[in-house]
């Protein structure tokens, strides 16, 4: 039926063309028989998404209400896992640092990416080269860059400390060895590796601002800073909000960088929830508690996601 409507709307634009198509029933053919193909093509999509996303989520929820050691049948325990977790000091600490880690990285990434995008779009030379180079940290395997940085942060021998020593800031900072400070290098690397992607997205948004708008501002005598705060920033705020939301979610989920830098240590001081859940399941064989952690994290992420989407929508209006 839609195909017919489309034909009619087309007809009003190009009367002759539309009539030709209708008389030969060709236009209807294009949509009509393709609907069947669409159904065929979509079957594998839905089957696979159900098997690899739907079922596992249901399975996780089921596991979170059970005790399971990796073998044999599940033993239902009701809310036991959850009440245990809410009382657990490590779980509370991990939740706190996961949120701290995710928000610090996301805010850092979006702030730096926005400043860089604004600088580049204000016609810094070599525009295209920066687009390519700044994405390097996002391309290289996270395991490799994380190992590089954790070696760099070693006291005395690490390259970061060597350089700090050379410029007189002291070369014996053992950030990763102390549970007080170990999270900061991890946050730094998280930001370092994610800025490139956010930069490309935000630059894309800035470049979509019509040139006429900027020209008008320039004619009115707005300087670069005024243009940035009064024109660019308000217009790209929805994209920044989406980017911020996604970055929070990705970092919250981010296992690789933290695991490769600290494996959650020292003394679980950098065990963000994905790492805590991984250890709980695959080191200690407590799959039920691990699943409960995952469910709690999943609920939190859903809340963050829906707030972020709602905020960016209301901005767009």
């Amino acid at each position: 039926m839609t195909s017919l409507k489309e034909v009619q709307s087309k007809e009003s634009q190009h009367p002759k063309q539309g009539r030709v198509f209708r008389s030969k029933k060709k236009k209807i053919g294009l949509d009509g028989t393709n609907i069947r193909s669409a159904k065929f093509a979509l079957i594998p999509v839905f089957v696979l998404l159900f098997l690899f996303l739907g079922l596992p989520v249901i399975n996780s929820i089921q596991l979170s209400f059970s005790r399971w050691g990796g073998l044999g049948p599940l033993e239902p325990v009701g809310f036991q896992n959850y009440t245990d977790l809410f009382a657990d000091e490590q779980m509370r600490y991990s939740s706190r640092i996961t949120v701290l880690y995710a928000f610090s990285v996301a805010i850092g990434v979006v702030a730096i990416a926005t400043v860089l995008a604004a600088a580049v779009s204000a016609s810094v030379r070599g525009h295209k080269i920066y687009k390519v180079i700044w994405f390097f940290p996002g391309i290289a395997p996270p395991t490799a860059v994380a190992i590089f940085w954790s070696s760099g942060f070693q006291p005395e021998t690490g390259i970061v400390n060597t350089i700090l020593g050379k410029i007189g800031l002291g070369g014996d900072h053992a950030w990763l060895a102390s549970s007080e400070t170990a999270l900061y290098p991890v946050i730094f690397v998280g930001i370092w590796s994610a800025v490139g992607f956010a930069f490309l997205v935000i630059l894309g948004a800035i470049e979509q601002i019509p040139i006429s708008v900027r020209e008008a501002a320039t004619v009115d005598g707005a300087n670069i800073r005024q243009q940035f705060f009064k024109i660019t920033l308000p217009l790209i705020r929805p994209v920044m909000l989406i980017m911020l939301t996604l970055q929070i979610i990705w970092t919250f989920n981010g296992f690789t960088v933290v695991w490769a830098m600290t494996t959650g240590g020292p003394a679980d001081s950098t065990s963000i929830l994905p790492i805590l859940a991984y250890k709980e399941a695959f080191r200690f064989g407590r799959f039920g508690t691990a699943a409960a952690m995952a469910v709690i994290a999943g609920i939190f992420l859903m809340i963050i996601g829906s707030i972020g989407i709602r905020l960016s929508r209301s901005e767009q209006r």
Binding site: F46, L53, P274, A277
Partner: peptide
């Protein structure tokens, strides 16, 4: 309807998947 279903697939966090994946 297709779009909404697929979009929902982009937001499932990996942390919810690894244990069931291992199990299966």
């Amino acid at each position: 309807r297709v779009m909404v279903t697929v979009l929902a697939g982009t937001v499932v966090p990996a942390i919810l998947l690894v244990i069931p994946f291992f199990k299966a």
